[in-house]
């Protein structure tokens, strides 16, 4: 193994321990957002044990959590913000809304499914999913992210 490879390998092992999470609300009813906040902020769940941290800017993000059915009104903004997130990124669809439209499925006002517009990697179904399920999804996302960087 050359020196360069060793350094890359070391950097990768370090990086995978601290993915930053960015949350996009694509018109969610707020149920999934509350669960996402719970997952991060309540000591009982504490997603930071996986090394994750929520960040305020899309440019810092590694893992993107998308909630909501991509309403017609928010669609362009979501796509613009998503384009600002640097690669490699892993996208997690939280709740049935982004996956299929859920309760808003086939409404004229939503553009679900989100994966028609963005590359989604992990789905976490539920309405809303419980915090442990979101942690499970984030853990799967970290495993995918490890492959990508």
């Amino acid at each position: 193994m050359t020196l360069m490879q060793t350094i890359t390998e070391k950097a990768r092992n370090l990086a995978v321990r601290s993915p930053w999470i960015y949350r996009i609300n694509a018109g969610s009813c707020n149920g999934c957002d509350v669960e996402c906040a719970t997952t991060a902020l309540i000591p009982r769940y504490d997603v930071e044990r996986l090394g994750c941290q929520y960040c305020g800017s899309p440019r810092h993000a590694d893992i993107v959590l998308i909630t909501g059915p991509l309403t017609a009104r928010i669609k362009d903004d979501v796509l613009r913000v998503f384009a600002e997130i640097p690669d490699p990124k892993v996208t997690v669809a939280v709740g049935v809304c982004p996956i299929s439209g859920g309760i808003f499925r086939e409404s004229y006002a939503v553009h679900a499914q989100v994966d028609q517009y963005l590359p989604v990697d992990v789905n976490v179904p539920g309405c809303p999913p419980r915090p442990q399920a979101i942690i499970e999804g984030v853990a799967q996302a970290i495993a995918i992210w490890r492959e990508r960087i």
Partner: peptide, 30 residues
């Protein structure tokens, strides 16, 4: 992937053909 876990189907099923379990391990790759 579109079920909202409301339990209506279980409530209205005249037999016990449809039922809700407590399994929430549903996160999956796309």
């Amino acid at each position: 992937n579109t079920c909202v876990f409301c339990g209506m189907c279980e409530f209205y099923c005249p037999t016990d053909a449809i039922s809700q379990s407590d399994d929430w391990h549903m996160a999956h790759a796309v």
